[in-house]
């Protein structure tokens, strides 16, 4: 999980609208939402919409197992056969409520850190959620600005709130470039002293 290779980070919002293309060179769809598993932070897949300006969302979705490669310009899949019904990836009712954008981030000590504006992903062999970009509240020194808050690599998050360990506030970064190191530092700190947050 924590290899010393430099972290390739991207925002979830950058994936929205990215074309899904088969290895045969056909455009299948565009990425709509990023779906992740809250417990492990791993990307489970993507919901899709049809390409174009007045695009409609689609009834099928792309599970992570069907992804051949996620690049700057496209998400590649072997062929259309890898798509599964959207309700199998994320049941509609659940998906509607589970969007983390606009949610508040609380520390486990009960401080409100701000509102989630984006989610930071790490791209390696799998794609994982490693942090939130938040519109900072007064609890952080940078109130009003957008900052990045790292997440532990195993989370225990309830469905309603986004709770991070209080120690995360010490590893906040203001730019995405420096955030990779902050995530690493935060996670190794959690591994070493798991009880210092108590």
């Amino acid at each position: 999980m924590s290899t010393p290779t430099p972290m390739l980070l991207l925002r979830a919002s950058e994936l929205t609208g990215r074309p899904v293309v088969t290895l045969g060179g056909e455009l299948v769809a565009e990425i709509k939402d990023v779906v992740f598993d809250r417990t492990g932070g791993r990307i489970a897949g993507f919901t899709l919409r049809n390409p174009g300006l007045f695009s409609r969302s689609r009834k099928d979705s792309l599970p992570w197992s069907g992804v051949h490669g996620v690049g700057r310009d496209a998400v590649m899949v072997a062929d259309e056969a890898v798509l599964i019904p959207a309700k199998e990836l994320a049941p509609r009712k659940q998906a509607h409520k589970a969007n983390v954008l606009e949610d508040r981030v609380l520390t486990d000590k009960g401080r409100d850190l701000g509102r989630v504006v984006d989610v930071v992903l790490h791209s390696g062999r799998s794609l994982d959620v490693v942090g939130y970009e938040v519109q900072a509240s007064e609890a952080l020194g940078t109130a009003g600005r957008r900052v990045f808050i790292p997440l532990p690599n195993t989370m225990a998050v309830s469905g309603e709130n986004l709770i991070v360990p209080a120690a995360a506030t010490e590893f906040v970064s203001e730019d995405l470039a420096g955030f990779g190191a902050a995530v690493e530092a935060f996670r190794s700190r959690l591994r070493e002293g798991t009880d210092d947050a108590l």
Binding site: P19, V21, T22, L23, G24, G25, E26, L27, G69, A74, M76
Partner: peptide, 12 residues
Amino acid sequence: IGLGGYAVVVSA
């Protein structure tokens, strides 16, 4: 690798 309506796909 492939040639379709949208793109020419080549190995990385």
